[in-house]
């Protein structure tokens, strides 16, 4: 029982990170109907920016951890957003009216380009960060196992909840959110209502990248090592999460992220750690057989 609880905690923390990245996939799909395969690498870029700015702050003597973290968060979100905006502007917008496969191909190209850029710029070796947030507390001890909740896990879950709440408020309550949803449903009609569609699409990429940057920072703090390749496998997992939850649905992305995180953690804990990815992806296949549009997705209605 204690072991189970411990895995539940670990799974939720991991799933939160997946969920934050999955939001970026699902939003972009919702608004322009393309899978942004470079999004995983945007997350990787976010993690690197976080690492570099963290080390930079340490070097100039900002050693008070909460302050440093907030500064790193702001810097990482801003710079990664700029990356997201630029990628859309350079690689996707010129191809938007092209044939359907074109944006998919550039997305894959963009993903490889980002990986190689980071490999060349930062080197291929893993980059460690000494544990910044240590400390944990024991929730309760069983016979031979103590359930612990580490501070970093609390930070991950709280950050995710706060961001989701802010994000939901923006989408649901503000004029920007309304125009975003309008573009999702009928881009042409939104333009005729005076909504600047290009700017709204840019905004989607910016918001997705900002969330990915937060995920990058949390990943860095949680695992302590990053390399130029983390974007691939984490990105694919987050994409799986988005599809699992129903691509295009925001709560679906978060739910999918949690499910993937939990499956992975439980499989590693109870079965074999080597097959944890197989378990996660098999779950996707199973869910899609019974819910073709994902758990919370709306079935595609053919427009007449």
């Amino acid at each position: 029982m204690e072991y189970f609880l411990q895995q539940l905690i670990n799974g939720i923390a991991l799933g939160s990170i997946y969920g934050l990245i999955a939001i970026g996939y699902t939003m972009v799909y919702g608004i322009i109907g393309m899978i942004n395969f470079a999004h995983g690498d945007v997350f990787m870029v976010g993690a690197f920016i976080a690492l570099i700015s963290f080390l930079g702050l340490m070097a100039v003597g900002v050693t008070f951890v909460p302050l440093a973290l907030i500064l790193v968060l702001v810097v990482a979100m801003l710079l990664t957003s700029a990356w997201g905006w630029t990628i859309e502007r350079v690689a996707y917008r010129p191809l938007r009216s092209s044939f359907r496969l074109a944006p998919l191909i550039t997305a894959i190209g963009m993903s490889i380009a980002l990986q190689n850029f980071m490999q060349v710029a930062q080197g291929a070796r893993v980059k460690p960060l000494q544990p910044v947030i240590t400390g944990r507390f024991e929730m309760f001890a069983g016979d031979n196992f103590a359930v612990t909740l580490s501070n970093i896990q609390i930070l991950i879950v709280v950050t995710t909840i706060v961001l989701m709440a802010v994000f939901w408020l923006i989408i649901d309550r503000t004029s920007l959110g309304r125009s975003l949803r309008a573009c999702e449903q009928d881009r042409m009609m939104a333009a005729l209502c005076g909504v600047n569609v290009d700017r709204t699409i840019s905004l989607t990429f910016v918001m997705g990248a900002a969330l990915a940057a937060v995920a990058g920072l949390l990943y860095l703090l949680y695992y302590g090592v990053i390399d130029f390749f983390i974007g691939f496998i984490v990105g694919i997992k987050a994409f799986t999460a988005a599809v699992l939850g129903g691509i295009g649905s925001l709560p679906g992305a978060m739910l999918g992220g949690l499910i993937i995180g939990l499956i992975e953690t439980f499989w590693s804990a109870y079965f074999t750690i080597e097959y944890k990815d197989v378990a996660a992806f098999s779950m996707l296949a199973l869910v899609l057989i019974f819910f073709p549009s994902g758990l919370l997705g709306r079935p595609e209605v053919e427009k007449v």
Binding site: R178, R181, A182, Q185, A190, C193
Partner: peptide, 15 residues
């Protein structure tokens, strides 16, 4: 915008 409420449809127009 079929998935948005009637009021939201009118608010988008004033975006």
């Amino acid at each position: 915008f079929p998935g948005m409420t009637v009021l939201e449809n009118l608010m988008v127009a004033q975006h």
